[in-house]
Nucleic acid binder design. Structure first.
Lengths: 121, 121
DNA sequence: TTGACAATTGAATAGATATTCAACTATAAT
DNA sequence: ATTATAGTTGAATATCTATTCAATTGTCAA
């Protein structure tokens, strides 16, 4: 088991598996995007916003009222969701209506609910 | 449109939808668990660890070498994954082998990859 | 055109968290 | 028994991030 080719504070125990795992890893860019997606969904306020939007589109004030939060806080979170292509929006008069951009979030929620052993109503 | 029943810095625009959304929200406990799941997966190092483990179980040193990180850093992250029922482990001699606890993470990854438009090899 | 309100934005703050470092436990080999 | 190695753990630090606050933009109604 050689050690020199790995810059790490510990030995390689199974060189073959380690090399194989390195080879199979997607690019850092891909993994970053993947973890970013989960990170964006994985904030309690954003999870709640997405849960609301998976029923129907809603404007910022209404979302703030459902979640008992401020327009500003909600708007900041919506910006993050927007920048990560998770929600879309359309303006109607003074109001801006947000909605889920595609079906992936709903699927993630279903699997997540399954994992934590709760039944979505 | 009454405002008083909502403690918020803005008006309720569509009271019926707001009340309906409140009624449909799962419990805070459920939503916390759900967002926690995504938060735990949504860290770049943990995403990488899980990606490795979805091929085969692996011991801490090997994971550290694949990811070019330290035993300690990996061990800290594995503890978080353990505490959230995402990975399991078994000891064999001096080594501890970690593996995915169930199939949900793999499903989350597939949907996530689909969302970011990458094809998992 | 003026006032009211929905929404966004930037800066500041407070809270959360990943990594590092050092110390420690447990197991295997000599 | 002693030494070496795998892994864990707690504390400290440095980074990141969610919320708040104040100011601003854009649209509608009077």
């Amino acid at each position: 088991m050689s050690k020199n080719k790995f810059i790490c504070d510990c030995n390689v125990i199974h060189e073959k598996q380690v090399l194989s795992a390195i080879k199979n890893m997607p690019s850092d860019d891909t993994l970053l995007k993947l973890s970013k997606l989960f990170k964006v969904v994985g904030d309690e306020m954003r999870t709640k916003i997405l849960f609301i939007l998976h029923y129907h589109e809603m404007c910022v004030c209404d979302i703030a009222n459902v979640l008992n939060s401020s327009k500003s806080a909600i708007s900041h979170q919506l910006r993050i969701l927007r920048e990560n292509d998770i929600v879309g929006f359309c303006k109607k008069g003074k109001e801006v209506y947000y909605s889920l951009k595609d079906n992936h979030i709903k699927l993630l929620f279903e699997i997540g609910m399954d994992h934590i052993g709760e039944v979505e109503k």
